[in-house]
Amino acid sequence: MAYLELLWSFFQIGLFSIGGGYAAMPLIQHQVVDVHPWLTMREFADIMAIAEMTPGPIAVNAATFVGTRLAGLPGAIVATVGCILPSCIIVLSLAGIYYRYRKLTMLQGVLGGLRPAVIAMIASAGISLMILAFYGSRTLPADLGGIDYIAVGIFTLGFLVLRKWKTNPIYVMAAAGVAGVILYGIL
């Protein structure tokens, strides 16, 4: 039963994450934090950070992590299969259609409508992560004064470096981690 739930959850993540990259992030949060009590927001943030530092798509990384924690290696395999199954079916069917008609206007239209919505969802998930980084909780606390100034400092610096020099995100994240160890260690 647990396997079936895992499979179905990650099937939905695979099916509805359109646009690549971070598009899967809000869906993963929805499935494994909101709908199912599989990960805490903190653990979800950790897996996003780990996914960024290791090779492979975010969704496959998350599937393996959640699957392993719930049901060991078989769980990891089941979740990963669920996650890539929609890709296999849809990509191969689309390839068939494409080779026959060579035109995908309708599909491009669907994508055109989806892109802004996907951006909005990534923005929302990003804000959740920021609140977690600055306040250590999932939702904004009533007292906004209890903000973690070290976290705000690291965030601001990282953000400025990314904007100004278009640095590779991996370096920024690694530097942010080292900065965390130094600053939290001293202060």
Binding site: I119, L132, A151, F155, T156, F159, A179, G180
Partner: peptide, 26 residues
């Protein structure tokens, strides 16, 4: 744990950057 706390700020910064770039495209 301190490393992960720092890295979380890094992830937030990366996502902010990505979102801003995508909004500019729109």
């Amino acid at each position: 744990s301190m490393f992960m706390a720092g890295m979380l700020c890094g992830v937030a910064a990366v996502i902010c950057d990505v979102v801003i770039r995508m909004i500019q495209d729109i």
